[in-house]
Design a protein around this nucleic acid. Structure first.
Lengths: 203, 203, 203, 203
DNA sequence: CATGAATGAGAGTTCATTCAT
DNA sequence: GATGAATGAACTCTCATTCAT
């Protein structure tokens, strides 16, 4: 068994190497600007090799989206430990934005890119995203239950918070903050997040 | 005169037809995935014909972006008539979102698409956008001056409101509302906007 | 008659304007790099207008070659006045080189360019060139007759002188003097011409 | 080893096939008029294949130019063995002309074609050409030192000889000998070369 | 007479993909 | 398992040329 196990492991490592390389390239140049050749060069293999691990470019894309979803989940997961729902919620928000800022390529892949994203082909990714979203809405509900909000419309509250966070990150990711001096942008984002939390307390 | 007038008109119509076709294609497939050939096919002309009306692909893009900025301005302009700053602000927000919903392609072009860098070449568009943004921030400041807000940080307030509206619209435009049943989405957006306004009143 | 005469004249002027423009462009950029559009722009007419005066690009080329041959003839013609054959010959050489240096585009057109040069289509040009060549060989013969040369092989003498002059000019025209510092090139050419004459005296 | 050796060989053969095809086409039609597609058709491969062997069109051109320079050097090299400088010089001239006559395409490439500027990109070729030119001038100097010439202006002498040889060859290469009957042309060239040498003895 | 509008053909180049080895 | 070699299809863009007006 150990031989086939090793082969299995090596296969996975190779897949991962391809995905890592692709990820880095997507981060820098965006989906459309990345070619199979680019990826092959990055891992120092031939383009043909890529096709031993992925059927076509789309499959890489789907795998990457899943990967991005997993990275995001891991980035957000720790907040599940936080008992107090309000603290859990605020930390969730903070980390959501942090994820977007640290991994703009991944954020782009998940929430901005226009891509062949048939739920069928990428269902795992979809389910993963959904479960995180569920967790988010549950946390809002927990805040309601714990009387942190007077409003009881968990869905709308969650959505509103998401809109703000997504707007904030995607203005960064797609470089639409050019009217603000570069050195002020980070501070502005932080202040805005704080402001939103303060506003939310009045809900 | 009528002959040259007609020719002038036909020329404009052709330009517009190209822009319309290009916009549709950009919306469906994104900037990079649209080729001059695609556009030519869409209007049933030869690719070379496109070059009689636009210098190159970028010029089409810039023209569209300018057009988008103009449509947006015209969509928002009427609120300048509203005297009360708070009403002016809320109406501005409502119309901003309305613009994005009615013209997702134009919104995409302005605020989401990864663009061939502009600054120099598309300065008019940039200036137009800036002036609208300025008007928006001025309106926030007017609200502060009229004691609608206790907070005096106009910039952060404006940015926060923008984040929400942009997040809301861009989740629609890039089809990231799939976890909500289609028939509920509009209602959700409206509720969220209302919720944000209510929250903002406490600032 | 005067109306049709005027029209005839205007037609010729237009043809000439086109040729002049084409000539300037050929001079700067070479035959292949010049497009009908370039020429049209230069004379501030539309490309289609060119076709009212010339059947196609080749016809312009042929006309230009003829023109070049005429300019060259006019450049060399004055030497026919010189009585002394040796002086006539040296002056012919001097002017031949001078023509090439002053009109590299024309020289290129006549003696270097690889082009559709069927003798049929451009016979006038060919005849013109031949007559000048004949004049050149006759002058050499005259030198022989006047005992300036001991050798009686007029054809070889003429050809040898031509080889030198053509080599000299075409190294300039096609930019093959890069191993000599730019400021020395003119002087070198002059010295070489003088050297050749001195050598020739011993023939 | 034999497999990789064979592949290596095949690769070289392919490169050479491309260069041969390109050379033939350049000779017939000139650099600008030759397309990658033409070359591909000539070797019965797809255009994309060319790019597996050469980065772009210029690289083909540069490779050819280098090849031409190498062939020329090999053609001239043997004269270095000749001790007597005058004999060395005359043999150099004879072989220079012989090279041009035997390889008009290569000569054209080196001394006539309007080239995509090089210096940096084709420095090897340039250096090679320069070293041969240096050898030529040194030989002239050696003739001076050995009192074969009274004149001491090595540079002008060398240049003058070059002008003649280049003129002679390039009139052939670019088909400007049409006024001489085909069967006399070779003889004329030989006589002219002899005449020049005789003249040169008087320098 | 002049041209605006149009286009087929073709330029150099890149890409995702296949397949024999 | 890995790849070198190959290619069809596509890209942006320019050109000579035509023709209705």
């Amino acid at each position: 068994m150990s031989i086939s196990e090793r082969k299995e492991r090596e296969k996975k490592e190779m897949r991962q190497a391809i995905l890592d390389a692709a990820l880095n390239l997507f981060r820098e140049k965006g989906y459309d600007a990345v070619s199979i050749r680019n990826i092959a060069e990055a891992i120092e293999y031939s383009p043909a090799t890529i096709y031993l691990y992925f059927k076509d470019k789309n499959e890489i894309f789907f795998a990457l989206q899943y990967e991005a979803a997993a990275v995001k989940r891991d980035h957000l997961l720790p907040v599940a430990q936080i008992e107090d729902p309000w603290q859990r919620l605020t930390e969730f928000g903070r980390r959501y934005i942090d994820f977007g800022m640290k991994h703009p390529g991944l954020y782009d892949l998940l929430f901005i890119i226009r891509a062949p994203m048939e739920s069928v082909e990428n269902q795992e990714c979809w389910l993963l995203g959904m479960s995180v979203h569920k967790f988010f809405e549950d946390t809002v509900q927990a805040c309601i239950d714990a009387r942190y909000f007077k409003s009881t419309d968990a869905k709308t509250i969650a959505y509103t918070l998401w809109c703000h966070a997504h707007g904030l990150v995607s203005l960064f990711v797609r470089d639409r903050m050019r009217m603000y001096p570069p050195e002020e942008r980070g501070e502005l984002a932080r202040k805005s997040f704080a402001m939103l939390l303060k506003m939310a307390e009045t809900l």
